[in-house]
Design a protein around this nucleic acid. Structure first.
Lengths: 232, 232
DNA sequence: CGCCGATTCTTTGTCGACAAATAAAATGCA
DNA sequence: TGCATTTTATTTGTCGACAAAGAATCGGCG
């Protein structure tokens, strides 16, 4: 029997955010795998609230493409589009480059502190061989760099891509312990130093190399999967 | 007295889309100027439906940043952020370039037909000195080019930027008749030809030049406004 | 006359209920 | 038995109502 969650009295207006955040996490962590049906009444019972805030949370998630809603029919967790993965890689690489460049130009001292905190967490995760923590802190680090670039348009697209990537990496997180090496820590350090030095061109090169490496790694996973699923 | 609109019997589920599309148009056409308060019950009466679908449409619009919602307080049409306009120009220029490049690589014959249709409409608008039609068809043309590039991530960001730009251009649409010259028609023709020739680098240069010109034009408007609003 | 607190009023966030739309099950017919 | 059609069941989309949270108004006190 599933453990019953209990949600204490909450303030008016906090319901949607609660549901939204939790659902979003469960989707990105693959607790709710792609294609899972989402039942409104079931969620309403689980959170102890009416269907209205649930629906609002689902509408927001649909706006970000995390769930898909067929009219008059159930909404489900969005699938991962493996066929057009190259468009994802292309956009991800470009956003890596652009946000890092802008960070070099527009960062302020407080930004670097935040960036270094995330980098410290990433380093700790690598040393602890904690793949899930690596994925999370890596994402947070690059999000912080994008924030320092101060372009909300790039930031929102980048966050969307990073989250999609988070979901993708979770698929293979078991394989990460031996594949996310200390090398990544050094690459991050180099990028942070280049940002601090405000060296835009160096940032661009480092970001591109970093992105390429991540893309290559994911593609390895994908290729391995496709080989395994080949008909014999 | 305002003319009463009448909305005939509609199919279940079509309500939100109706409200969403109409509100969106009214916001982008500045019928609802930035900062306008949005009253749910008023909209509910106007459309002859309950507040529930209205709210869902507003949530979607908030997800795209077209309206801003303060908790427990009225939601209003999002303001135009004139202070950070450069981030908008930067992103717009990059998306012009990237989508045109991709169109050169990935377009198919049917895409070119659609693109040419929009270009024909744009040309007609220029000859008719119809500034509003110019703005609309110019947006549609570039959206079609982005579609031909087949990257949904770029496309969604680009659409958002184009719509924000549509709102911006409406501010100055009276000044357009003498400022959107035939030159733009020729630039479009050159871009379309470069796409057809699959010349990626040429597309990049043309797109950048085109974007720069549009940015310069908007900046002229902005500068003129700021001069007029200078304290004397 | 002006400032502060209580009261009213407006608007939002949430709820439970109902009806339409579709899927699933049951029934009839060949 | 297999297929088409009706019936039931499930789930969504919409509604009207109510209560909480601010904003505006009013009244009291200095």
């Amino acid at each position: 029997m599933a453990e019953t969650e209990t949600f204490p009295e909450r303030r008016r207006g906090s319901g949607v955010k609660l549901v939204y955040d939790l659902l979003r996490d469960e989707i990105l962590d693959l607790v709710l795998p792609p294609g899972s049906p989402i039942d409104e009444v079931q969620l309403a019972e689980r959170f102890g609230m009416s269907r209205t805030p649930i629906r609002e949370a689902l509408v927001r998630l649909a706006g970000e493409g995390l769930v898909e809603t067929l009219p008059n029919r159930s909404t489900m967790v969005a699938n991962i589009d493996f066929l057009n993965m190259h468009t994802f890689f292309d956009a991800l690489t470009l956003m890596y480059r652009v946000t890092t460049r802008l960070a070099a130009s527009y960062h302020q001292p407080a930004d670097l502190e935040i960036i270094r905190e995330h980098q410290a967490r990433f380093t700790a995760a690598v040393e602890a061989q904690d793949a899930l923590a690596m994925i999370a802190s890596n994402r947070d680090l690059h999000a912080a760099i994008a924030e320092a670039g101060r372009n909300p348009y790039y930031l929102s697209l980048f966050l969307r891509l990073l989250d999609e990537g988070r979901r993708l990496l979770r698929l293979y997180y078991q394989s990460f312990n031996d594949r996310l090496p200390r090398e990544y820590v050094d690459e991050h350090e180099a990028m942070i130093a280049a940002i601090e030095a405000r060296d835009v061109e160096l940032c661009d090169r480092l970001a591109k190399a970093h992105a390429d490496q991540i893309v290559r790694q994911i593609q390895q996973f994908l290729a391995r999967d496709q080989r395994q699923s080949l008909p014999l």
